[in-house]
C-alpha cells in the first residue's frame, strides 16, 4: 500500500465524536430494549438499565455538542447539505451503484475527499439524523428523564404519551440504523477498510 493512496478524511475530533457517539448509541439501544421489554429481557436489573440509559444519553448529548462545535467552527458543516441542482442525478447514480454496480465490482461513483466525504444519499440521511432525529431524540430523552421537572413543556407538546411515542419510534429507527450503518461500513474496498479509517483517519483511495 503506497502513501499516495491514503487520504486524511476523518480528523481527530470527528473520530472522537464518532466513537463516543457509537458507544453511547449501542448502550442506549441495549438498555432501551431492556427498559421497554423488562418482562422478556434479563440483561440487567431495570433500575440499573434506566441509570445506564440516562448516563449514555447524556454522553451522546455531550458528543453531539462536540460534533456541532467542530463542524460549525470549521465551516465543514456544509458537507451535510447536498447540492439541490445535482442531487437527483447523483442520487440515481448512487442507488444504481448500491443496487447493481457494487455486485459487478464497478467503482463507487462518489469519490471521497476531505471536503466532500459523503455521497448524496449519505448527505441526505445524515442531514436528517443529525439535525432532526438525534436532536428530537435527545430532547424527548431529557424530558423523559425528568418528567415532573419538565411537565410544563411536556404538556405543551401534547403530553407524555406523545413524547414517549417520538422517543420510542426514533429508538427503533436508531436500532435499525445501527444494523444498516454497520453493514454499509463493510462496503469499502475491503470489509474492514472504513472501520479502520474511522480509527486512523485515513481512507485508502482506489
Amino acid at each position: 500500500m503506497s502513501h499516495e493512496k491514503l487520504i486524511y478524511i476523518h480528523p481527530a475530533p470527528v473520530r472522537v465524536w464518532h466513537w463516543l457517539n457509537a458507544a453511547g448509541i449501542v448502550l442506549l439501544v441495549a438498555t432501551g430494549f431492556q427498559i421497554r421489554y423488562a418482562e422478556i429481557l434479563n440483561l440487567m436489573p431495570l433500575k440499573d438499565s434506566v441509570s445506564l440509559h440516562n448516563f449514555a444519553g447524556f454522553g451522546v448529548i455531550a458528543a453531539y455538542f462536540l460534533w456541532l462545535f467542530y463542524y460549525l467552527s470549521t465551516g465543514k458543516i456544509i458537507i451535510y447539505f447536498p447540492d439541490p441542482s445535482t442531487f437527483v442525478a447523483k442520487a440515481v447514480k448512487q442507488v444504481k451503484f448500491y443496487g447493481y454496480g457494487i455486485f459487478r465490482g464497478e467503482p463507487n461513483p462518489h469519490v471521497m475527499t476531505p471536503e466532500n466525504k459523503f455521497n448524496v444519499l449519505q448527505q441526505k440521511a445524515y442531514l436528517g439524523i443529525m439535525f432532526v432525529l438525534l436532536p428530537a431524540q435527545m430532547i424527548s430523552g431529557v424530558f423523559l428523564w425528568k418528567v415532573k421537572g419538565y411537565s410544563d413543556y411536556i404538556h405543551l407538546l401534547g403530553g407524555i404519551r406523545i413524547i414517549d411515542t417520538i422517543h420510542v419510534l426514533f429508538f427503533f429507527f436508531f436500532a435499525s440504523f445501527l444494523v444498516v450503518h454497520c453493514y454499509l461500513a463493510t462496503l469499502g474496498h475491503t470489509p474492514l477498510a472504513h472501520f479502520k479509517a474511522m480509527f486512523t483517519g485515513y481512507e485508502e483511495h482506489h
Binding site: 404538556h155 404519551r161 420510542v168 427503533f172
Partner: peptide
C-alpha cells in the same frame, strides 16, 4: 390518555409492531 405513561407498563402495542 396522553398525559400518563408508566414505563413499559402501559406501553402501546402498536409502537412495538412498528418497531
Amino acid at each position: 390518555l396522553r398525559h400518563f405513561y408508566a414505563l413499559g407498563g402501559t406501553r402501546m402495542k402498536l409502537l412495538d409492531k412498528i418497531g
